[in-house]
């Protein structure tokens, strides 16, 4: 089954996947597909299995049942085409290493055994740092970076992998507004280059501005498809259940809320203001 291509026209194809965490299944018999060239969000309430799903796709948690293919082949055969950004909190940032060094780690898989990264690797890592606007921090010890800067370094490490499909686990959690916008811009650029970007996302308010594909998850796949067709009150209600009261006020009506959040950060004032406005207008247009 691994030899011939299985659903090669899909960037990610997940079939009948059941994954357990500490012996207890958290995802039951999941089927979903993500076409290439989209920017997809995976949303769902806490404990819905979003991170578990990504980890299982990347072979970090073996599934109980089902299978996954990327561009028609299992992950093991496609490792080089995949970029991965784990949750920022998953590592010890006091580790003695520099930003440039962390980015270079993205090339370790390609380097293979016994070879040390050289000038060429450092140059690609530097280019990736430039892409996320962190070139001035290349030699900085990672513990001296802010949360948002650390997240950008992690993103640069995935960029240097030069992949066709990117998985990001909560990249926007706990970062400032500037970083969030910078990350989204980079991800959009990747998408425009024809790459597939899959993001575990926690903020329902921004789903429609940032993404064009959506997977709503809660133990099962509640809904999947383009954002326009999937981001509906019904779907969200059936995924979030009791928390829907909060949703109604925040995700559907709040324009003021998101605006207030944007201007709360003083760094946001310089470049992003007009874009934020445009995004806000976008929200209003679609909601009305």
């Amino acid at each position: 089954m691994s030899d011939h291509l299985h659903e090669p026209e899909l960037a990610l194809h997940v079939e009948d996947l059941t994954v357990s965490y500490h012996g207890k299944p958290v995802l039951w018999d999941i089927d979903f597909d993500i076409p290439p060239g989209v920017m997809a969000a995976i949303v769902g309430p806490n404990g819905a299995g979003k991170s578990t799903l990504i980890k299982s796709v990347l072979g970090l948690i073996p599934p109980i049942a089902g299978h996954v293919t990327l561009f028609g082949r299992p992950y093991r055969a496609q490792r080089r085409r995949v970029g991965y950004v784990p949750q920022r909190s998953s590592v010890d940032w006091d580790f003695p290493t520099t930003a440039l060094d962390v980015v270079t780690m993205g090339l370790y898989g390609r380097l293979g055994w016994l070879r040390w990264p050289g000038r060429k690797e450092r140059r690609s890592a530097m280019e990736a740092l430039e892409m996320v606007g962190m070139q001035d921090f290349a030699g900085r010890q990672i513990s001296q970076l802010s949360g948002g800067q650390q997240q950008r370094v992690f993103l640069a490490r995935a960029l240097v992998q030069n992949a066709d499909i990117y998985f990001l686990d909560e990249p926007m959690a706990g970062v400032d507004a500037t970083t969030e916008r910078a990350i989204v811009n980079i991800l959009r650029r990747l998408r425009d280059e024809g790459k597939t970007v899959i993001v575990v996302h926690h903020d329902l308010q921004t789903v429609r501005t940032y993404f064009d594909w959506l997977l709503i998850l809660n133990v099962r796949v509640v809904a999947q498809g383009s954002v326009e067709s999937t981001y509906t009150a019904d779907n969200l209600r059936s995924a979030y259940g009791g928390q829907i009261a909060l949703l109604d006020s925040e995700a559907f009506i709040s324009r003021a809320g998101s605006e207030g959040r944007e201007s709360g950060h003083d760094e946001a004032v310089d470049t992003g203001a007009d874009r934020a406005d445009a995004a806000g207008a976008d929200v209003r247009e679609r909601t009305s």
Binding site: D16, T18, G23, P25, W28, D29, D31, I64, A65, R220
Partner: peptide, 20 residues
């Protein structure tokens, strides 16, 4: 206990698969 749980999960998994 794990074995029991695994077998139980297998049959539940089957039910979910058929249901889906």
């Amino acid at each position: 206990e794990r074995r029991r749980q695994r077998h139980l999960n297998e049959s539940r998994n089957l039910a979910v698969h058929l249901y889906n």
